[in-house]
């Protein structure tokens, strides 16, 4: 699969053909999802209408974690098989992941204000996502910090893997810290059980997010492929002139 897509011409050919369908599916799932989330689904018996924020908040959190796993896996492939396309995919996915992380944090904050009475609460999950945000930031910064791009992608790949090992540890430690400092008197954000009428919009939105992410990922990979090509042409052009 990786070898098949690693050829830029073939990658462009395949993705150009699949792009309209993917974008269409993204639009379809998101529009049905939003209608279902805002109109069809019932308000929560405890939280009222604020529960509707969940339908963007929770899928964003899923995407944030999912994309970080994607980055870790592609980074591992890149390091083990020295596959430049794998590094490229990881690099292209990072801005998408950080966008969903920021969405998760801001919508979480907007949900927290009416529920907890504060924009920020040191809830274990919110805090863990905040550190996930910094892991993303470190990955992106390290990627761009070198004059030689291939050096940056390797360092960043190692960092992504170390971070990936560390994510559960951070989550565990923050959970632990949270129970230590805040006795569990808060209303849990998502309650014990979710009714099926709430699951439908949740999954629709998640599917929509996934398809959007695929579209953006493909576009960003194309950008990076082009950048690489331009860089090579500039180097070769410079040789031609001299």
């Amino acid at each position: 699969m990786f070898n098949f897509l690693a050829n830029p011409a073939r990658f462009n050919q395949v993705t150009d053909r699949l792009m309209p369908a993917t974008a269409g599916l993204a639009g379809l799932f998101l529009s049905i999802g939003i209608i279902s989330a805002l109109i069809i689904s019932p308000p929560d018996y405890q939280q009222g209408d604020t529960v509707r924020i969940m339908y963007v908040h929770v899928p964003s959190a899923w995407m944030a974690l999912f994309i970080y796993s994607f980055i870790a896996i592609t980074s591992a492939i890149g390091l083990i098989w020295r596959h430049p396309f794998a590094h490229l995919s990881a690099q292209a996915a990072a801005p998408i992941g950080i966008t969903f992380t920021i969405l998760c944090l801001t919508t979480g904050s907007l949900w927290g204000k009416p529920m907890w009475g504060a924009w920020w609460v040191w809830d274990a999950r919110l805090t863990s996502v905040l550190f996930l945000f910094f892991l993303y930031l470190g990955f992106m910064a390290l990627n761009k910090a070198f004059d030689d791009p291939s050096r940056g992608e390797k360092s960043a790949a190692i960092l992504a893997l170390v971070g990936f090992i560390n994510v559960p540890v951070i989550k565990f430690s923050v959970d632990w810290w949270n129970t230590l400092h805040q006795p569990a008197s808060l209303l849990r954000a998502d309650g014990p059980a979710i009714h099926s009428s709430m699951l439908t919009p949740l999954f629709l939105m998640a599917l929509g997010f996934i398809f959007v992410a695929v579209c953006v990922l493909v576009t960003r990979i194309k950008v990076l492929l082009l950048k690489r090509r331009i860089r090579l042409m500039r180097i070769n052009g410079g040789k031609l002139r001299s």
């Binding site: 892991l135 910064a141 390290l142 910090a145 190692i158 971070g163 951070i170």
Partner: peptide, 22 residues
């Protein structure tokens, strides 16, 4: 990881501090 990077010192803090939270 930051050997040879621009602004290595700040970058080092940015990538290491989140890992040291636990």
């Amino acid at each position: 990881l930051v050997l040879g990077a621009r602004r290595g010192g700040v970058l080092l803090a940015l990538i290491v501090l989140p890992l040291l939270v636990p």
